[in-house]
Design a protein around this nucleic acid. Sequence first.
DNA 1: TATAATCAATCGATAAAACCGATTTATAAA
DNA 2: TTTATAAATCGGTTTTATCGATTGATTATA
Lengths: 291, 291
Amino acid sequence: MELRQLKYFLKAKELLNFTEAAAALYISQSTLSQQIKQLEDELQVPLFNRIGKRITLTEAGELFSVYAQQSVNKASDGLQLLKDLNKLETGKIAIGVTYALRHVVTKALILFSSEYPKIQFEIIFGTSQELIQKLNHFQLDVILTFEEIASEAHFKYLELFTSPMALVTSSETSLKNKKTISLEEISMLPLAMPAGGFSTTQFISRAFEKSNLHPKVTIEINDIPTLLELIKTGKWHTILTKTTIEDEKDLYAIPIKGENMTRTAMLISLKEVYEKKAVKAFLKILMENLK
Amino acid sequence: MELRQLKYFLKAKELLNFTEAAAALYISQSTLSQQIKQLEDELQVPLFNRIGKRITLTEAGELFSVYAQQSVNKASDGLQLLKDLNKLETGKIAIGVTYALRHVVTKALILFSSEYPKIQFEIIFGTSQELIQKLNHFQLDVILTFEEIASEAHFKYLELFTSPMALVTSSETSLKNKKTISLEEISMLPLAMPAGGFSTTQFISRAFEKSNLHPKVTIEINDIPTLLELIKTGKWHTILTKTTIEDEKDLYAIPIKGENMTRTAMLISLKEVYEKKAVKAFLKILMENLK
DNA sequence: TATAATCAATCGATAAAACCGATTTATAAA
DNA sequence: TTTATAAATCGGTTTTATCGATTGATTATA
C-alpha cells in the first residue's frame, strides 16, 4: 500500500470513472486499472463493483476511503508544516467569506500581503451552507460568516464581533431621522432581499413569522452588489447586518428594534487539522484590525 | 512521498541508527540512506542531523514525524478495518492486564477463543504505568487495570466493577473469624507487599501515611505469583484488591475498614483509533461474564 | 598515536515495478 | 444489429527501488 495508490483510489472514488480519473491524474487508464487492482489484491477485497462498464464503491471501498483520505491528508499536512517552517515564503490560504463580511477580509488582505507578498490567496464568496460544505471537503482553510445554528463538533469557532440587523436604504431617504426602526414599520416598506440561501435572509424571515408580520418582498436576488445597486435607487429597501454596508457611502443603515436583532461574526475552521502558519498569521492581522 | 519512505523514516527515527534501522526493515543500509535522502529532497529540508557518524533528528524531523506516524497509522487502520470485515477470521488482539485482574481476562479468553479460534492473542502483564506507556505507543489495543489517578484526554475509560482492598492471608489464619479489619490492626502484622511500581501498593501506602501508621513491610517483590506463595506459608500477610485472589483456594481475604477502600476496575483504550472488530467482540464477552 | 571498528554516503549494476499504447472484452446506447 | 464507451489485459519500455562493494569520515581501543 502506497500513498500513490491511495490517491489514485480516492480520485477514482470521486469521479466513479476510471478513464476520467486517469486523465485527472495525468496517467493512462491502464495504469490506473492496474494500480487499483494491485491495491485490491493487497487488501484482499474489491473496492469497486464492476457492473458492466460502470463502477460503484463497495461497502469495503466506502469504509476504507475514510482512512485512505486521512492517511493522505496527514502526509500532506506534514508537508505543509515543513513548508510553513520555511519562513512563510510559500503557502496558499483559502478563505470562504459571506458577502456581509467582505470589508473585514479585504482590509486584512491588504495589510497581510504587504508583509508577506509571496503567500497566495483564494477568496471564495458564498452562502454559509456552501462555505461549510467546502470546509468539510478540505477545500477551505477557514471561513468567516455569521453564527450558524447547528454547531458541529468537528469545527472550531471563534467569535469576532457582533453587528445589528438593520434596514438599509438609500442615503436620500426620508427615514434618515430615525435612530431605530421596528419590524412592523418595515413590513410597510417595499423590500428587495437576498435569496433564501443566505443565512441573514433565513434569520430575518423567522423573525417576521414570529411577529405574525408579512413583509412586502418584491425582489429576491442572489448577488449582493446588484442588490445594493437597487437599494441606491431609493425604490426599495433591504435588511442586512450593518457590517455589510460598512464602506458604502450612498447607503444608510437603521438598526432594527427588538431583542436578538444582532448577529455574531465568526471564524470557523476544522479541528484536528494542522493550522497553516500563514493562516495563523493572517487571522492575527485580521483580528487586530477589526476596528 | 510514499508510505514506504515514511515507514523507513519512522524506524530510523526510532533507532537513530541507519544500519540498525535498515536491518530491522530487512533492507540494505544503502537503500535506507537513499530513500531518506529522497524524502528529504522532496520535503526540501533535512530530517536528520548528520554529526559525524551519529544522527539526530532535526526540528523539522521531529515535527514531521508526528504526521508521518499518523499517516502510516491511518493507512494501517484502514487495512485492519477491511480485515475485520472479513468475518473475524483474522486479527490480533493485544491486551495489557494488571495481575490483579488476571482471572477476568483468562475467563473471557477461554470463552472467546472457542467461538473465534483464529484470532491471535498477546497478553501482557505489567504495572499500570508500563501498560499505559505501551498503550500510548500503539503496542496494545486495550488495557485492563484499576483506576488511574491522572485521567488523560486521549484515553477512553470504561468502568467494570469495584473490588474492596483486603488483607490477604493464608486460609489457616487465626483471623478467619473477622469480617473486616482496620489499617491499625494491619500495621501490627508482618507484611509482604508488591513492589512500589504497582498501583495498589502506591494506593495503600498513601492510606497508611494519611492515618500516620507505619506498616511492617518486611518483603517487597515485583512478582505476584511468588508473593502469593509466600503468603500461603502463613508467615506473612499482604494487601491486595479482593479480586486478585478470586481463584486461589489456599488464600483468604478480609476487607479493610474505612472509606475509599475500594478500587474500580477499568478498561482503557485510545480515542480516535479504529477499534478492531475482534477487540470489540472480545470486550463484549468479557463484560458479559464479569459475574 | 596508530589501528581497528563503526557508520553513513556513494557508485554501478540489477531486479522490480510503474507506466504506456494497443487490443480485447463487456456493456449500454442508437 | 451496429456503434460507442469503459474497464481489463497484454507486451514492451522506462523508471526506480534495491543490492553489494567501496569510500570517507568519526569514534573507540590497543
